[in-house]
């Protein structure tokens, strides 16, 4: 039997991997996947706590997150496509026009 701590540790690990991925990877698709990883780490936490407390609030919250993430994916991928078409590159470092 696995205790809730295992799930939380897994979620923290996933979140850390995602955050590091966002910070160190240059490919916009990979960065995007890392963001999804972080969102899902959050979902895992929500569901875990819902399970421990015996309520369904957390589970409902997880559904919301998924819905928002789906919408975000649509927009995010569209932006990445547009950037790739105009710059022939999917590197986030190349899209640095908004600097001082």
């Amino acid at each position: 039997m696995m205790s809730p701590e295992h799930y939380l540790i897994l979620a923290a690990a996933l979140f850390t991997i995602g955050a590091v991925g966002v910070l160190v990877r240059r490919n916009a698709i990979v960065v995007f996947m890392c963001v999804e990883l972080m969102l899902n780490a959050g979902n895992l936490t929500l569901v875990t706590f819902a399970r421990t407390t015996g309520t369904i609030d957390g589970q409902v919250m997880a559904f919301f997150v998924m819905a928002v993430a789906a919408a975000e994916v649509v927009i995010g991928l569209a932006i990445i496509m547009a950037i790739y078409r105009s710059r022939r590159s999917a590197s986030v470092d190349d899209a640095n026009l908004l600097k001082a």
């Binding site: 966002v22 910070l23 160190v24 986030v92 899209a95 640095n96 600097k99 001082a100």
Partner: peptide, 11 residues
């Protein structure tokens, strides 16, 4: 100087 234009540094 903080406005580098790199999304990763903002993140």
């Amino acid at each position: 100087a903080l406005q580098t234009g790199f999304v990763r540094s903002y993140a």
